[in-house]
Design a protein around this nucleic acid. Structure first.
Lengths: 160, 160
DNA sequence: AGTATATTGACGAATACTGACCTTATGCAT
DNA sequence: ATGCATAAGGTCAGTATTCGTCAATATACT
């Protein structure tokens, strides 16, 4: 039972794969909302929750007459770009949930395999667990450590 | 006498083998809890204790409307004798050099890819480094931690 | 008895969706 | 140029759903 958000998300994804692989699509908010029988702000919700930098997208838009919404797929010219992007989306501290959704998105994008994802989660759990039970460090500090480890692991793959 | 946790665990395992072998199942926490006549958080306990990355599973979930829990099986659980074998090779404590040569051997035999090897090495290095510089633990203790992490990471992959 | 595992329930946090109200761009009439 | 009408899209707060966490309690296993 797919949610409206998921339906709109996959509709937009189809636009990306139509004909050749495009690196952007543009659309009109009102039309799309009418097409799906929902309020226009629902489209903003889909964009804000699904087409994020964490998932590899950027969104541009313009208001007024001839307004539009343009969704761009992020692509990296050089390995260093990829590493910078990884550091940006992870930041200095990250929760377990955030880490997991980044990993899911990376697998979705084909940047890592499911086994690689598994290895990262095992390592994250280990540091978190050890930090908590052996070293008694605060939840915040644990999230800082997790961010550091995640950046290093994903960063190392970006170069290989 | 099978515990509720075991009953729910085998129910989920059956979902994996229904029809063809699936690589994931999704479910709704509340429904499952009602089905087994328990509180919803019981489901979390089953997931946390049985469907862990160390055993080859990943769990994705989403709250709110249209929320769900999705369990992915990445690797089949490793038979006990193989787990024993890996634990024997690694032991209770391991140096960075020993760890590296085990990983090289595993890659040589095609059990892990070079990227997987890289991930493990990065995680081991991080643990060692953090143990030394942040927690000031002895070299011996660090080798104990490394052995534990290495066992968990290799164990999760169900190597043949 | 003491430790580890299992179970419960109260509370908190995240997600989906809507609708009212706000901001910005275009272009035409003056 | 100026101003106003029109035509986009943005934001925010409220509501209903779901799931997660954590601490307390109970049970089972040495």
């Amino acid at each position: 039972m797919a949610s409206l958000t998921e339906i709109i998300e996959s509709y937009i994804n189809e636009l990306f794969t139509e004909e050749e692989e495009r690196d952007y699509v543009s659309l009109r908010r009102k039309e799309l909302a009418e097409f799906f029988g929902c309020v226009p702000s629902q489209i903003n919700y889909v964009l804000r929750s699904r087409f994020t930098p964490e998932r590899g997208y950027l969104v541009e838009s313009q208001r007024g007459g001839h307004g539009y919404i343009k969704i761009l797929r992020i692509c990296y010219e050089m390995p260093q770009d990829k590493i910078n992007h990884i550091e940006e989306i992870i930041g200095d501290s990250i929760s377990e949930q955030e880490a997991k959704s980044i990993l899911a998105a990376f697998q979705e994008r084909g940047l890592i395999t499911s086994r690689e994802r598994l290895l990262v989660e095992v390592a994250l759990r280990f540091t978190d667990e050890t930090g908590a039970s052996v070293f008694n460090i605060s939840p915040y500090k644990r999230n800082v450590l997790q961010a550091e480890l995640l950046k290093r692991m994903l960063g190392s793959l970006a170069l290989s």
